[in-house]
Nucleic acid binder design. Structure first.
Length: 501
RNA sequence: GUCCCCUUCGUCUAGUGGUUAGGACACCGGGUUUUCAUCCCGGCAACGGGAGUUCAAUUCUCCCAGGGGAUGCCA
């Protein structure tokens, strides 16, 4: 049977690195076995779902570059793929469960106090420690079904709750974790299936849709383990065969807690804006909790899809390491062709006001010439503006002190820089070897190290002590501009020397 | 509190009874070099603890400890 897996996000927030990892693992599994990857929107929380988040979801995955075989936008035989468009289905199925005496109407008022308060801290867990069990006290379970049915039919507000067996155990075999057994007494007592607004909860919608859509494998984070038995009980009640379950290890922040905003960037969109390459992000995230081929660490999406196996998923949670991600990003930047790098950094250059959003021909040429200069120096695409500013904007003449090599004073530096200017007039900056030998000779003649001769020129031309290789930078800039900057700098140095005397 | 899951270098991991416990990031040295990077070489560093099983346990079993997760009309 062809494998069918799904990614089922709820559009109640920006696409998060943790959920994207779940999507990625599902995708990799599907592709590794020639199965289908399906997108389903779980927008059953009417107050929190929003179109803006749906858009963010599409934007995110378009950027990441992986796709689904079936989904709201591409259609498919098991649609619709948006739960709010399947509204009637859930009530129908909940009703079936009631009719079979596997679920019941509940008329208890919504317990606001039981709702998790966002601001609540650890004290809340102490409060929750009721000595006699937990959760809903199953009050309405005792109601006469016929009577309850009448009340519901008359329009009295109600929810539908699942009857969790009072004793016995529910077990399932997790692909990763093996057999997991739960005493039914420990399962969430009678969870809500259908809310009072008529929408299903995750539990109901998830089970109904996974079955109706022919999902064969459910891969989701380990935080879902406690609700797995409840889902199994539902599959049994319906008489359906449950899909195979695989609970993925969690992704943690450096402090060992579930990855969240306070750990740094977590929304995929933030990574894009911060100058990460999607290939680097995918490569890194794929390696959190899973391994592919020993002795190798650079994998394309296709490589990952080919190499993925569930046997190589780890059970233990993984800590998200921004430093290692940074290394991956640098690796991927270096693998870009010059033209690719240009198209990647152009938006950031434009944002910094250094080039037009649609670069002019001259800017495009300058960008292309500059690409090889910075390729191995960038950790993030966002580093490009600072690294290349000197090519697109006129730097202020640096203060003399900035231009002094170690142990040299302003007069020495002025002398060195003047010599450099003289040399610059004579050489072709694009002839790297000629430049270097000319400057080496001159340095020796002046009793300077090559670096000392070059430093004042570097600062004068680029405006900073740290720059791409000087001769190539000058070649990219053009000798005329470089000369003008250097000559101004000589004057500044001379003035400083005068003052210092 | 209760239930569940997890446990190899600081981090990500390889490893499925016998290995000098391997790799990557980070870190520390050194080299190349025109600053910064890149690149190359070397180094540091781990099987949570205790009982078993076995000729032999990182690997199998149990207990403990530690960590994480769940305990919603959120997913």
């Amino acid at each position: 049977m062809k494998a069918r897996v799904r990614y089922a996000p709820s559009p109640t927030g920006l696409q998060h690195i943790g959920s994207v990892r779940t999507a990625l693992f599902n995708y990799l599994f599907a592709k590794s076995v020639g199965g289908d990857f399906i997108l389903r929107l779980e927008d059953t929380d009417r107050t929190r779902s929003s179109d803006a988040y749906v858009k963010n979801l599409y934007d995110t995955f378009r950027w990441l570059g992986f796709y689904w075989d079936e989904g709201p936008d591409v259609g498919g035989p098991a649609g619709p793929y948006v739960q709010s468009e399947r509204f009637a289905l859930y009530r129908e199925h909940a009703q079936r469960l009631v009719d079979m005496d596997k679920a019941y109407y509940c008329f208890c008022a919504e317990d606001k106090a039981a709702k998790k308060d966002e601001a609540a801290d650890d004290d809340a867990s102490a409060d929750a420690a009721s000595p006699s069990g937990f959760g809903y006290p199953r009050t309405c379970r005792a109601l006469d079904p016929a009577e309850a049915g009448k009340r519901a039919a008359s329009g009295e507000p109600h929810v539908i709750r699942l009857k969790i067996p009072l004793d016995g155990v529910t077990a399932f075999d997790d692909i990763l974790l093996g057999r997991i057994e739960w005493k039914n007494a420990d399962v969430n007592p009678d969870p809500v299936l259908l809310k009072s607004d008529g929408f299903p909860t995750y539990h109901l919608a998830n089970v109904v849709d996974d079955h109706l859509m022919g999902i064969t494998h459910v891969m989701r984070a380990q935080e879902w383990i406690p609700s797995a038995p409840l889902h199994i009980i539902m599959y049994d009640a319906f008489g359906w065969e449950p899909p195979k379950l695989c609970h993925l290890p969690m992704v943690l922040g450096e402090d060992g807690h579930k990855l969240s905003k306070r750990h740094g960037a977590t929304a995929v969109d933030e990574f894009r804006k911060k100058g990460y390459l999607e290939a680097a992000l995918i490569n890194y995230v794929a390696m959190l909790g899973c391994s592919y081929e020993d002795g190798r660490d650079i994998f394309s999406l296709d490589d990952l899809a080919r190499l993925f196996t569930m046997e190589h998923i780890n059970k233990a949670p993984a800590v998200f390491d921004y430093v290692k991600l940074e290394w991956f990003n640098g690796q991927y930047i270096r693998m870009l062709s010059d033209a690719e790098l240009v198209s990647r950094i152009t938006p950031f250059m434009a944002e910094a006001g250094l080039v037009a959003a649609e670069p002019t021909e001259a800017q495009a040429a300058a960008l292309l010439a500059a690409a090889p200069l910075v390729k191995e120096r960038l950790k993030y695409l966002t580093d490009a503006p600072d690294a290349l500013r000197f090519l697109f904007a006129e730097p202020a003449t640096p203060p003399a002190a900035e231009m002094l090599p170690k142990k040299l004073d302003a007069a020495d530096a002025a002398r060195a820089l003047s010599a450099a200017v003289g040399l610059l007039r004579a050489v072709d900056p694009s002839d790297h070897d000629a430049c270097e030998s000319a400057f080496r000779e001159k340095a020796a003649e002046l009793g300077l190290k090559l670096g000392d001769l070059l430093m004042p020129l570097r600062v004068a031309v680029t405006g900073t002590k740290v720059s791409p290789p000087l001769f190539q930078s000058i070649a990219a800039l053009g000798t005329a501009k470089a000369l003008a900057r250097a000559e101004r700098a000589v004057l500044a140095l001379l003035a400083a020397a005068e003052e210092g005397r």
